[in-house]
């Protein structure tokens, strides 16, 4: 489209910037408040810090037990990702490329979950986990998260698998390659772009998961970062230690920021493939 820069264009541009500012400004504000002392903050919330109080980050790290909760988060996110990713990928391959009895039934049952909102299953799921003695356990949470639901990812990956030419598999099979070999040597390398997208979304989803860890983990030493920040906010209402909480929020954002900066293209492309966030 041919465009002249008119007065009205400036207004449109301002609108775009305004939305950008609503996103950036609170983040930047929290960052610089996190570098002030509480006194400075109470006195004037706009003033920039006189000396940068990096000690707030140190305090947040120890006060909110970031060391421990980071380990818990790594274990939970890592475990769920590895197990979930492996099974989603191999399952997608078996269900799209192999013929066997009951395949249609399995697909049908899995597709059913597209119509299940899931929220009504929270209570029975909890009772089930309790009966299996999997509550208050990060490993239990890993099992629930990695095996529970992954239809969107399964569909995404099976789409990828369908586009891989069958000849490759067939010639490998004639050469005597086992299905495992075919899967790991042919399918996985060719489906890597899809697997990476799924991995990124699983990471974001598990890292951001609040409700699961919040329901299932009762022992504070097992808290993930998300639950830890929720508790930190509750504590802050009594301690009025704002700057430490600001620093904590900033620390909790770091993994999201890193993943977003590294993979923004895949994230933005992948996001349009479905309402993955929910």
């Amino acid at each position: 489209m041919k465009e002249k820069h008119t007065f009205i264009d400036i207004i449109w541009r301002i609108i775009l910037y305004l939305w950008g500012i609503t996103i950036l400004f609170p983040l930047v504000w929290v960052l610089y408040e996190a570098l002030k002392t509480n006194q400075e903050f109470f006195k004037d919330i706009w003033k920039l810090p006189e000396t940068l109080q990096w000690v707030n980050f140190k305090n947040a790290w120890t006060e909110y037990n970031f060391g421990g909760s980071l380990l818990n988060t790594l274990y939970y996110v890592g475990g769920s990702m590895v197990i979930g990713l492996f099974f989603t990928t191999i399952n997608a391959y078996a269900l799209t490329r192999l013929q066997f009895r009951g395949r249609k039934l399995i697909w049908g049952l899995i597709m059913m979950s597209l119509f299940l909102p899931g929220i009504n299953a929270l209570v029975p799921q909890y009772v089930l986990m309790r009966d299996l003695h999997l509550t208050n356990s990060l490993t239990g949470l890993i099992l629930l998260s990695s095996l529970g639901e992954s239809v969107f990812y399964l569909l995404l990956l099976s789409g990828f698998m369908k586009s891989i030419p069958k000849e490759l598999e067939e010639s490998a099979m004639i050469d005597g390659a086992s299905l495992f070999k075919i899967f790991f040597k042919i399918i996985v390398p060719l489906a890597t772009p899809g697997i990476v997208t799924v991995a990124i979304f699983k990471f974001i989803g598990f890292y951001n998961n609040f409700l699961g860890p919040f329901i299932y983990l009762s022992d504070p030493s097992k808290y993930t970062i998300a639950v830890q920040m929720y508790e930190a906010n509750k504590l802050m209402q009594y301690s009025a230690d704002w700057v430490t909480l600001f620093a904590g929020v900033m620390i909790a954002m770091v993994p999201s920021v890193i993943i977003f900066i590294l993979f923004q293209r895949s994230i933005i492309e992948g996001a349009t493939l479905g309402g993955i966030k929910n």
């Binding site: 299953a121 089930l128 299905l179």
Partner: peptide
């Protein structure tokens, strides 16, 4: 192939039945 299917399909399917479908029905 049977071994492959057993490993590839059974665990995620049972997991789905147990952690997803069963609680939904139970609700």
């Amino acid at each position: 192939k049977r071994i492959f299917l057993l490993l590839a399909v059974t665990p995620p399917f049972l997991g789905y039945l147990l952690f997803s479908l069963y609680p939904n029905i139970l609700s």
